[in-house]
């Protein structure tokens, strides 16, 4: 580990070649183990799944090359996929606005509490469901729906909003802490100046808070959209896609295609279409944000 020249003796204006080489070696050494795992267990599977999606394959037999047939079927010849996509969108239409409103409201309330200890207490409390076990809380809410006679999970017309409610209950904490951080960063002088001009609290919120936190609003919107369009575990734990298939979402359909129907090729093709859909949505959101998100 000794270098030829001690750096403290030479003190070059720019790092010497040997120092830069040592830095490069250290860098490679430090990132190598983690990068190796990422390459083998994330990047290689990504490439592999692209290959699998062009095959007809039951998992054990030899995969048969079918070209774009899986994609073609998913896009033009699978009424189920279309219906489950629609059900996924309905789920998002409940979960995203509800999650956004609830977490922004709770964060605004917590932010305005004057005692730091009480603020910390509520922040801890509302984040709590995030750190618990998804299976356990899903079983808990399933039992609660049953015990209180609210049979929302058993009826096709109410099962999707019921699961959406559960996911908001479970996940609002992460949006709340994001909003709390954003609210804390709004400069106090803005409020003071507006109050001097006689602005009402609702005007302060509309014309100062909202524009100031709009980057976070955008981030939370994107994250919750991505999450809700891939909703899977809550469905698996609470409804198994039922009753009938009235709460089957795209992600749950992918899982069933792979591990109940053993159509690995078709399932991976659907996964890629879902991912492409998410990317398109992200790009569209990114373009739209310029109209309403204010960056400093």
């Amino acid at each position: 580990m000794m270098t030829h020249q001690s750096p403290s003796l030479t003190r070059p204006a720019r790092p010497s070649t040997s120092l830069r080489r040592e830095e490069a070696l250290w860098g490679l050494l430090l990132v190598a183990p983690s990068t190796l795992v990422v390459l083998v267990f994330a990047l290689l599977p990504i490439l592999g799944s692209l290959g699998v999606s062009f095959t007809d394959w039951g998992g054990l037999s030899r995969p048969e090359w079918v070209g774009l047939a899986n994609y073609q079927k998913a896009l033009t010849n699978d009424p189920k996929a279309l219906r489950y996509l629609l059900q996924t969108l309905i789920f998002s239409a409940f979960a995203v606005p509800l999650g956004l409103l609830v977490s922004l409201a709770i964060a605004s309330l917590i932010h305005n509490v004057s005692s730091p200890a009480v603020r910390g207490f509520f922040r801890t409390l509302y984040y709590l469901p995030m750190v618990t076990v998804g299976v356990a809380t899903a079983l808990l809410w399933q039992a609660l729906f049953g015990a209180t006679g609210v049979n929302w999970l058993n009826q096709p017309s109410t099962v999707i909003p019921a699961v959406a409610f559960f996911t908001v209950w479970q996940g609002a904490g992460s949006s709340i802490i994001l909003f709390l951080a954003a609210l804390a960063n709004v400069p106090k002088e803005l409020y003071e100046a507006a109050q001097l001009d006689g602005a009402r609290p609702s005007q302060l919120f509309r014309f100062i808070t909202l524009p100031q936190i709009s980057p976070t609003l955008f981030l939370v919107l994107v994250l919750s959209l991505i999450g809700s369009l891939q909703v899977f575990e809550a469905i698996l734990f609470m409804t198994k896609g039922g009753p009938g298939d009235s709460s089957t979402t795209i992600a749950f359909y992918i899982y069933k295609s792979a591990f109940s129907y053993f159509r690995m090729g078709y399932a991976t093709a659907l996964s890629w279409l879902l991912a492409l859909g998410l990317i398109v949505l992200l790009v569209a959101q990114w373009r739209l944000q310029r109209r309403w998100v204010h960056y400093e």
Binding site: S34, L43, P45, I46, S49, A267, L274
Partner: peptide, 19 residues
């Protein structure tokens, strides 16, 4: 590569990782 491993939907990598 690390970031990509974070954002790629798990459905995509699940089956090949199993293989």
């Amino acid at each position: 590569s690390h970031l990509l491993s974070m954002v790629v939907p798990w459905q995509i990598t699940l089956i090949p990782t199993f293989l």
